[in-house]
Lab assay of single mutants.
Amino acid sequence: MEVRTIKVFTTVDNINLHTQVVDMSMTYGQQFGPTYLDGADVTKIKPHNSHEGKTFYVLPNDDTLRVEAFEYYHTTDPSFLGRYMSALNHTKKWKYPQVNGLTSIKWADNNCYLATALLTLQQIELKFNPPALQDAYYRARAGEAANFCALILAYCNKTVGELGDVRETMSYLFQHANLDSCKRVLNVVCKTCGQQQTTLKGVEAVMYMGTLSYEQFKKGVQIPCTCGKQATKYLVQQESPFVMMSAPPAQYELKHGTFTCASEYTGNYQCGHYKHITSKETLYCIDGALLTKSSEYKGPITDVFYKENSYTTTIK
């Protein structure tokens, strides 16, 4: 009895394709271990004539594949690729409408935090270190965002349907971005203890939790000093293409032309909904596939993004 075979390709990165001759009487799992086709788990399936010449994702289970996976995804987590594939199996079914010149995501599976993050990423200057993220990001900007969303979920250790947080998501993504040249110098002034300067680099240099107003941050924000008295913390120097200011959701007025974009969060910790506000020729609110415009805006804002380049204080 002759062994019926077909020729397929296996890959971990969709760049390096490895030619395989597979036995049609055995499952993919018996031949390769966990195997995925377009995100779908085909591990328990036997090869079919229609699979001839198709590319299958496999887990990096030998040295060659491990090197290829690390170079593309910059992670050695053995569960990463499987999590990416199972997320992709959902995100490829989502709709990605162009809204006001940006790629958004039609609401499904509690994905409003991903839509808000995706919209924000198209408006701030950011370059990702893992080629996987950078490639998928370019495709997302062009309207094909399924891979990018699935990668975000995998890097953030999230599953489809789980509630997510924009600030946490951005923080994970910033860790995989090139923020080497970003720098922030802060000064804390206390009447009792004097003053202390701190220099922050990388992710810490672009994120701040405690106030939404970048102007206020430049002037000074009140913080408790270690001595128990009130101290003032203010920005001395900022070198970065953008800054992200966050605070627990509270009524906040966004003035046209003073910011790049913002995240609105309605609801409580267990259950809520994100919308995205962007400042173009007027203010726009993007909620999944829905767009509304207004000249002014007041609502429960939790993150505001500002364009920056270089700032030095005039406070002496």
Results as ranks from 00 to 15, higher is better:
residue 2 E to R: 12
residue 3 V to M: 10
residue 6 I to C: 10
residue 6 I to W: 05
residue 12 V to S: 06
residue 12 V to N: 06
residue 12 V to F: 08
residue 13 D to S: 07
residue 13 D to A: 06
residue 14 N to P: 13
residue 16 N to W: 09
residue 16 N to S: 10
residue 17 L to Y: 12
residue 19 T to R: 13
residue 20 Q to I: 08
residue 22 V to D: 04
residue 23 D to F: 08
residue 23 D to C: 12
residue 25 S to Q: 10
residue 26 M to L: 14
residue 28 Y to M: 11
residue 28 Y to G: 07
residue 30 Q to D: 14
residue 31 Q to R: 10
residue 32 F to G: 06
residue 33 G to V: 05
residue 34 P to S: 12
residue 34 P to F: 15
residue 35 T to V: 15
residue 37 L to W: 14
residue 37 L to F: 11
residue 37 L to T: 09
residue 38 D to V: 09
residue 38 D to S: 09
residue 39 G to A: 14
residue 39 G to W: 06
residue 39 G to S: 13
residue 40 A to V: 13
residue 41 D to H: 07
residue 42 V to I: 12
residue 44 K to Y: 10
residue 45 I to F: 14
residue 45 I to A: 12
residue 46 K to R: 14
residue 49 N to L: 14
residue 50 S to M: 12
residue 52 E to I: 12
residue 53 G to A: 12
residue 53 G to V: 03
residue 53 G to E: 14
residue 54 K to I: 12
residue 58 V to A: 03
residue 59 L to W: 15
residue 60 P to Q: 12
residue 60 P to K: 00
residue 61 N to L: 14
residue 63 D to Y: 10
residue 63 D to A: 14
residue 64 T to L: 10
residue 64 T to I: 11
residue 66 R to F: 13
residue 67 V to L: 15
residue 68 E to H: 06
residue 69 A to S: 09
residue 70 F to G: 05
residue 70 F to V: 11
residue 71 E to C: 09
residue 71 E to Q: 08
residue 73 Y to V: 04
residue 75 T to D: 07
residue 76 T to H: 13
residue 77 D to Y: 05
residue 78 P to E: 13
residue 79 S to W: 12
residue 79 S to K: 02
residue 83 R to K: 11
residue 83 R to G: 03
residue 84 Y to P: 07
residue 84 Y to N: 00
residue 86 S to V: 12
residue 87 A to Q: 09
residue 89 N to E: 14
residue 89 N to Q: 15
residue 90 H to L: 12
residue 91 T to C: 11
residue 91 T to N: 02
residue 92 K to I: 11
residue 92 K to A: 10
residue 94 W to H: 01
residue 94 W to F: 08
residue 94 W to R: 02
residue 95 K to E: 15
residue 96 Y to S: 04
residue 96 Y to Q: 00
residue 96 Y to V: 07
residue 99 V to Y: 11
residue 100 N to L: 12
residue 100 N to K: 14
residue 103 T to G: 01
residue 105 I to Y: 06
residue 105 I to R: 02
residue 106 K to L: 10
residue 109 D to Y: 01
residue 112 C to R: 00
residue 112 C to P: 02
residue 112 C to F: 07
residue 115 A to K: 00
residue 116 T to I: 08
residue 117 A to L: 00
residue 118 L to H: 00
residue 118 L to C: 06
residue 119 L to D: 09
residue 119 L to Y: 09
residue 120 T to M: 11
residue 123 Q to T: 07
residue 124 I to N: 01
residue 125 E to Y: 01
residue 125 E to M: 04
residue 126 L to K: 04
residue 127 K to C: 09
residue 127 K to A: 10
residue 129 N to I: 06
residue 130 P to T: 06
residue 130 P to H: 06
residue 130 P to I: 05
residue 130 P to S: 07
residue 132 A to L: 03
residue 132 A to R: 06
residue 133 L to C: 11
residue 133 L to R: 03
residue 135 D to K: 10
residue 136 A to I: 01
residue 137 Y to H: 08
residue 138 Y to D: 15
residue 138 Y to N: 15
residue 142 A to N: 13
residue 143 G to Y: 04
residue 144 E to P: 01
residue 146 A to N: 03
residue 147 N to S: 09
residue 148 F to G: 04
residue 149 C to W: 09
residue 149 C to H: 03
residue 150 A to L: 00
residue 151 L to C: 02
residue 152 I to C: 03
residue 153 L to G: 08
residue 153 L to P: 05
residue 154 A to C: 08
residue 154 A to P: 00
residue 154 A to H: 03
residue 155 Y to G: 00
residue 155 Y to D: 08
residue 155 Y to R: 03
residue 157 N to K: 13
residue 159 T to W: 05
residue 160 V to G: 06
residue 160 V to L: 07
residue 161 G to V: 03
residue 162 E to D: 14
residue 162 E to K: 05
residue 163 L to W: 08
residue 164 G to F: 03
residue 165 D to W: 04
residue 165 D to T: 09
residue 165 D to L: 04
residue 166 V to S: 02
residue 167 R to I: 03
residue 167 R to W: 07
residue 168 E to S: 14
residue 169 T to S: 03
residue 170 M to H: 01
residue 171 S to D: 10
residue 175 Q to S: 10
residue 175 Q to W: 05
residue 176 H to R: 10
residue 179 L to E: 05
residue 179 L to S: 06
residue 179 L to G: 00
residue 179 L to D: 04
residue 179 L to I: 00
residue 181 S to C: 07
residue 183 K to T: 13
residue 184 R to G: 09
residue 185 V to P: 02
residue 185 V to T: 08
residue 186 L to D: 03
residue 188 V to T: 15
residue 188 V to D: 04
residue 188 V to H: 07
residue 188 V to G: 00
residue 189 V to C: 13
residue 193 C to F: 01
residue 194 G to D: 01
residue 194 G to Q: 03
residue 195 Q to C: 14
residue 196 Q to C: 10
residue 196 Q to I: 10
residue 196 Q to A: 10
residue 201 K to N: 12
residue 204 E to Q: 15
residue 205 A to C: 01
residue 205 A to V: 01
residue 206 V to D: 00
residue 207 M to W: 02
residue 207 M to H: 05
residue 208 Y to I: 00
residue 209 M to L: 12
residue 209 M to R: 11
residue 210 G to I: 00
residue 213 S to M: 02
residue 214 Y to V: 05
residue 215 E to L: 03
residue 215 E to N: 06
residue 216 Q to W: 00
residue 216 Q to G: 05
residue 217 F to C: 01
residue 218 K to D: 00
residue 219 K to Q: 08
residue 220 G to H: 00
residue 220 G to T: 04
residue 220 G to L: 00
residue 220 G to E: 03
residue 225 C to P: 01
residue 225 C to W: 00
residue 225 C to Q: 02
residue 226 T to F: 09
residue 228 G to V: 00
residue 228 G to R: 05
residue 230 Q to F: 14
residue 234 Y to S: 05
residue 234 Y to P: 00
residue 235 L to H: 02
residue 236 V to H: 05
residue 238 Q to Y: 06
residue 239 E to G: 03
residue 240 S to F: 02
residue 241 P to S: 08
residue 241 P to R: 06
residue 242 F to S: 04
residue 244 M to R: 11
residue 247 A to R: 13
residue 247 A to N: 10
residue 248 P to V: 15
residue 248 P to S: 05
residue 248 P to F: 09
residue 248 P to Q: 11
residue 249 P to G: 06
residue 249 P to M: 04
residue 250 A to W: 06
residue 252 Y to M: 07
residue 253 E to F: 12
residue 253 E to P: 09
residue 254 L to Y: 09
residue 259 F to L: 01
residue 259 F to A: 02
residue 260 T to P: 01
residue 260 T to I: 15
residue 262 A to K: 00
residue 263 S to W: 03
residue 264 E to H: 05
residue 264 E to C: 10
residue 265 Y to A: 00
residue 267 G to C: 14
residue 269 Y to L: 12
residue 271 C to G: 12
residue 272 G to N: 00
residue 273 H to T: 03
residue 273 H to F: 02
residue 273 H to C: 02
residue 275 K to D: 01
residue 275 K to M: 12
residue 275 K to Q: 05
residue 275 K to C: 07
residue 276 H to D: 03
residue 278 T to M: 12
residue 279 S to D: 15
residue 280 K to M: 11
residue 281 E to A: 05
residue 282 T to E: 11
residue 282 T to M: 09
residue 283 L to P: 02
residue 283 L to K: 01
residue 284 Y to H: 10
residue 285 C to I: 14
residue 285 C to S: 13
residue 285 C to V: 14
residue 285 C to F: 10
residue 286 I to K: 03
residue 287 D to T: 05
residue 289 A to I: 09
residue 289 A to P: 10
residue 292 T to W: 08
residue 296 E to C: 11
residue 301 I to W: 01
residue 302 T to Q: 03
residue 302 T to F: 00
residue 303 D to Q: 00
residue 305 F to N: 04
residue 306 Y to G: 06
residue 308 E to C: 08
residue 309 N to S: 13
residue 310 S to F: 15
residue 310 S to M: 14
residue 311 Y to D: 13
residue 313 T to L: 14
residue 313 T to C: 14
residue 314 T to P: 09
residue 314 T to M: 12
residue 314 T to C: 08
residue 315 I to F: 15
residue 316 K to W: 15
